[in-house]
């Protein structure tokens, strides 16, 4: 699946992405309850089975491949909930999407600062 960005490298949650990512985002939204988080942590595969993820989306979630999740229609505000059950700093998620090491990401994009 390839969705063309109207603004380069800037995936907006428009019709095409919202449709493509609906199940993936719904899966992530399920982690906003204690029961959902407990189910994910107890048996991730069984939890994922509840949602109609494509094989590629499922693989991206299992691999914690943030860039791929976004490419497949995931929206950061939903998939970020995965980082609540499997702790990952937001800037590491940013670096992964930019295709940079965390060090290079902080240096090149954010001016090598450490807040937050």
């Amino acid at each position: 699946m390839t969705i063309t960005d109207r603004i380069p490298d800037t995936p907006l949650l428009d019709r095409a992405r919202s449709n493509a990512g609906y199940a993936l985002n719904k899966m992530a939204m399920g982690l906003s309850t204690p029961a959902g988080r407990a189910a994910f942590l107890a048996d991730e595969d069984s939890y994922l089975d509840r949602f109609a993820l494509s094989p590629a989306q499922r693989a991206a979630v299992k691999a914690r491949d943030w860039a791929e999740m976004v490419r497949l229609g995931g929206n950061l505000f939903y998939i970020l909930k995965i980082s609540a059950v499997d702790p990952t700093p937001i800037r590491a998620i940013g670096a992964a999407q930019a295709g940079l090491s965390l060090e290079d990401f902080l240096d090149q994009r954010l001016g090598k600062v450490t807040n937050g």
Partner: peptide, 11 residues
């Protein structure tokens, strides 16, 4: 700010 896509980290 931009949190997603290859332009993530844009400020």
């Amino acid at each position: 700010h931009q949190l997603q896509g290859a332009r993530a980290g844009y400020i």
